[in-house]
């Protein structure tokens, strides 16, 4: 018998909202939006946690410039604070080496992380998801009942084609859906907005491609001053404040 499932609700009982940043497509900026959202909410005075569930390509630690910290052991694992955010990632255990997991292993890792991480009291737990509608997405839907999804796409029809599949599943399963953000927007096409609104889903806005964003990776002070963050704030303040 699997004992870990029954403790997950208790671990998250003092977390007010769980925001799952997801996409059907890779490379659309989920990790940057997750980290940016976490930093913005923390600046607004919220208690924020960030959980990186992208095991194959974790990148939140690179964006936030996480070095030389490790969870504290106290009746579980207490995530270290990074720029005021309680941060948990598998990189603390992989030492940034590749993690070649099969599906069942992914479920076990998610269960273990959810069972042993002591988040304490949070206003928001942001989950940075891997792309797609595979094990991680299905496990989050199964284990974290209070998940609210925030979906990211780019302006590309190719990207949106994959993102749409995630939207269909979330709508079909009646999962709370905060809306869709169009990241790295280029040009003035309203294709994504039209498609999203046509599905009766909230279009949260577009974030223009910021050519200087790369220079701010790894430094949260620099990141906070980017055009990307200014536009992210406009999109997210519509739903969170």
């Amino acid at each position: 018998m699997e004992p870990r499932i029954s403790i997950i609700n208790k671990r998250l009982q003092n977390v007010k909202r769980v925001v799952v940043v997801a996409s059907g497509k890779g490379g659309v900026g989920k990790s940057l939006l997750s980290s940016g959202l976490a930093l913005h909410l923390e600046k607004k005075g919220c208690r924020v946690g960030l959980l990186d569930l992208d095991f194959y390509g974790p990148s939140s630690h690179i964006i936030l410039g996480v070095h030389d910290v490790f969870p504290q052991e106290d009746k579980g694992l207490i995530p270290p604070r990074v720029s005021g955010i309680s941060f948990m990632s598998l990189v603390f255990f992989t030492h940034d080496k590749p993690a070649p997991f099969r599906g069942g292993d992914i479920t076990n890792v998610i269960l273990e992380l959810l069972a042993i991480t002591q988040w304490g009291s949070l206003d928001f737990l942001i989950i940075d998801m891997p792309p797609g509608i595979g094990d991680e997405t299905l496990d989050v839907l199964r284990f974290i009942k209070k998940s609210e999804f925030l979906v990211v796409t780019t302006s590309s029809k190719v990207a949106y084609g994959a993102v749409e599949k995630l939207l269909v599943i979330l709508k079909e399963q009646k999962i709370p859906l905060l809306g869709v953000v169009e990241n790295m927007k280029q040009g003035s096409s309203s294709f994504v907005e039209t498609e999203v609104v046509g599905r009766d889903i909230r279009y949260l806005g577009g974030i223009l491609f910021d050519p200087h964003l790369e220079d701010a990776i790894g430094n949260t002070d620099s990141l906070s001053k980017t055009t990307f963050m200014k536009e992210l704030v406009v999109c997210f303040d519509r739903i969170f404040f």
Partner: peptide, 18 residues
Amino acid sequence: MHEWALAESILSAAQETA
């Protein structure tokens, strides 16, 4: 000491079974 967290999950599962 994450043994405590796992022990807690055992008791929680036992309560659920009960």
